[in-house]
Amino acid sequence: MAVLLLGEVTNGVLNRDATAKAVKAVAPLGEVTVLCAGASARDAAAEAASIAGVAKVLVAEDARYGHRLAEPTAALLASLAGEYEHIAAPATTDAKNVMPRVAAMLDVMVIPEVSKVIDAATFERPVYAGNAIQTVRSRDARKVLTIRTASFEAAGPGGSAPVAEATPAADPALSQWLGDEVAASDRPELTSARRVVSGGRALGSKEQFALIEALADKLGAAVGASRAAVDSGYAPNDWQVGQTGKVVAPELYVAVGISGAIQHLAGMKDSKVIVAINKDEEAPIFQIADYGLVGDLFQLVPEMTGKV
């Protein structure tokens, strides 16, 4: 059977890591067609075609797909659904916006954040902030899913899939893009980084959060944050790790001044090696840390930055 996979395209650029992880996840389900939609999407389509395991790429290049609005993209996916048994996407915020809309248009349930594919109808997904893993079997003829990218390896390079045009679907024109606020950064992207250094409420201010950034830069790591740090304005929202933020599984995760609330753990507890720096030796984060260091972060973090 065939799979239609929505590639993650932002401003004409393919998020290769997220897309390749989703390809890896759905490859056992059948022949994979990747759809790249955007105001400019041809380069992204060419890149998607080079992912191993991709059989075909569809490109829908049209201004209406330019700002990742849910309604036109969902209409496009629903119009292409045709012969595909599975319609999937990496579980990014864009896909979480679009895919449930697609599922409802097709009168099927969405299966969000799939962490394991068991067979064509059976999937695992974390629920209750990752405190339970649910196995569900879909009774729908067509399955709409999003893939938890942290649970899968990326499909490699070496593909050479043909690229074909997809006909744009009618645009319901219900919403309009006004602007993006994106902080440009040279750091690795949080969800694909091999190392992540995260700071919590203990940092105390935006200025002092720079200690986290300095350690991250020294390690070539991405920067993450707890919700408390984001809420307090020490870090931007797109750095939040957790149940309602990003899910990461790097080789090294360093949690600094983070207590370890279940909602935070939900986003990082599958990391390979976890380090916790906290002055409270009873902090719950130590229960899942491979290496714990008890003490004052304002002393320990600069020292560590100097020594790695």
């Binding site: 349930m109 299966i111 339970a132 893993i133 196995t135 009774r139 130590f286 899942i288």
Partner: peptide
């Protein structure tokens, strides 16, 4: 009536505390 039949629910793989340095 549900479209997704819950076949089972399990605990996630546990992670035990490591060491303090």
């Amino acid at each position: 009536s549900p479209r997704l039949e819950v076949v089972g629910v399990r605990e996630p793989e546990g992670r035990s505390a490591g060491i303090k340095v």
